[in-house]
Simulated scan of single mutants.
Amino acid sequence: MNHFTITKPSSSLWRVSFDNPPVNVFSSQTIIELRTLVDAAETDPDLTVILFESANPDYFSAHWDLTDDTSSLASEPPPVTGQQAFVDVLIRLSKLPVISISAIRGRARGAGSEFLLATDIRFASRERALIGQFEMTTGVAPGGGAVSRLPRLVGRGRALEILAGADDFDGDLAERYGYVNRSIPDAEFDEFINSFTHRVAGTDRGAVAEMKGWVNEMTLPDDQEFRPQSDAFFARLTGPEVSGWITRAFEQGLQQPGDLEERLGTRGFEV
């Protein structure tokens, strides 16, 4: 894989590190690799936990690659759920019969945040995590599931604040809102993550799958909620307002380490 490195400390635990320099953007290639990973996870009889983390301490996943035209997906098998490819793989991820955990250091915005929302459990570094849905700064609503997943996690008012305000949330505020499960001091982060993942990996795989299936029935959005959101996103993506924002943002350093990407939640409306 080009964007993910998988290590398997045991048969029940996979550690998946996202590594797509310079700022870990999501792209068609990421979707293809994530689909391969989900295919394998669905059929592995021993797997209990997948831990997602980043090789870049400053960027868990900056956002979608705004230079990607998705043409490479044309030769791939059709999406299993019938949804747009990114949404499809996130739906499948959320329904895996294993526990998926995100260990968040660095920035996770847009598609990066939507990936986090599709995982079961999210832990954030208190000092290093910044997460948010910046899309409204560009003139388009999120299309990868945030509109459906966030209200179920944080409630209606806070979901609207996150989506409309398009600002960054640090670890503590994200925890207070329910955007993440827990904010952990960075000095204690690795120890906590290792302890929790090994604890869950040691439980009975069948019982985990059974328990998660019941929770899914009560908490996951219906798949059909996502289609209008992704359709509207792609319809607006090529419009003059969004295209103009993208052009100006690249001129100011989008998708490269620097002030714009570091403070995108603050600077997005200024582009």
Score class of each variant (00 low, 15 high):
Met1Gly: 11
Met1Ala: 09
His3Met: 14
His3Leu: 12
Thr7Tyr: 02
Ser10Gly: 03
Ser11Gly: 15
Trp14Cys: 00
Trp14Ser: 08
Arg15Met: 12
Phe18Leu: 14
Asp19Val: 12
Pro21Gly: 07
Pro21Trp: 05
Pro22Glu: 10
Phe26Leu: 01
Phe26Val: 00
Ser27Thr: 00
Ser28Asn: 09
Thr30Phe: 06
Ile31Glu: 11
Ile32Asp: 07
Arg35Leu: 04
Thr36Gly: 14
Thr36Val: 00
Val38Gln: 01
Asp39Met: 05
Ala40Thr: 00
Ala40Leu: 07
Ala41Gly: 15
Thr43Trp: 00
Asp46Glu: 14
Asp46Val: 01
Leu47Phe: 06
Thr48Val: 05
Val49Pro: 08
Leu51Cys: 09
Tyr59Gly: 06
Phe60Asp: 04
Ala62Gly: 10
Asp68Pro: 00
Ser75Asn: 10
Pro77Val: 01
Pro79Arg: 02
Val80Pro: 04
Gln84Glu: 15
Gln84Met: 03
Val89Asn: 07
Leu90Arg: 08
Leu90Ala: 05
Ile91Gly: 02
Ile91Glu: 10
Ile91Thr: 11
Arg92Leu: 08
Ser94Gly: 13
Pro97Phe: 13
Ile99Trp: 08
Ile101Arg: 07
Ser102Ala: 15
Ser102Met: 08
Ile104Ala: 09
Gly106Val: 05
Arg107Met: 00
Arg107Pro: 00
Arg107Glu: 00
Arg109Tyr: 09
Gly112Phe: 08
Ser113Ile: 13
Ser113Arg: 10
Phe115Ala: 03
Leu116Gln: 08
Ser125Arg: 01
Arg126Asn: 02
Arg126Cys: 08
Ala129Gln: 06
Gln133Glu: 15
Thr138Gly: 13
Gly139Arg: 07
Val140Gly: 10
Val140Glu: 10
Ala146Gln: 06
Val147His: 00
Val147Trp: 06
Arg149Thr: 12
Leu150Phe: 09
Pro151Ile: 09
Arg152Ala: 09
Val154Arg: 03
Val154Cys: 12
Gly155Asn: 06
Ile162Gly: 06
Leu163Trp: 03
Gly165Phe: 09
Ala166Ile: 05
Asp167His: 10
Asp172Leu: 13
Ala174Glu: 04
Arg176Ser: 14
Tyr177Leu: 14
Gly178Ala: 08
Val180Asn: 02
Ser183Asn: 04
Ser183Ala: 13
Ile184Ala: 00
Asp186Glu: 11
Asp186Met: 02
Phe189Asp: 06
Phe192His: 08
Phe192Trp: 12
Asn194His: 02
Ser195Leu: 07
Ser195Met: 10
His198Pro: 00
Thr203Leu: 12
Asp204Thr: 05
Arg205Asp: 08
Gly206Arg: 01
Gly206His: 06
Lys212Cys: 05
Gly213Asn: 14
Leu220Gln: 11
Asp222Ser: 09
Glu225Leu: 09
Phe226Met: 04
Phe226His: 10
Arg227Val: 12
Asp231Ile: 11
Phe233Ser: 03
Gly239Pro: 11
Ser243Asn: 09
Trp245Phe: 13
Arg248Ile: 13
Gln252Arg: 13
Gly253Cys: 06
Gly253Gln: 01
Gln255Cys: 07
Gly258Ala: 03
Arg263Met: 04
Thr266Phe: 10
Gly268Arg: 11
Val271Leu: 03
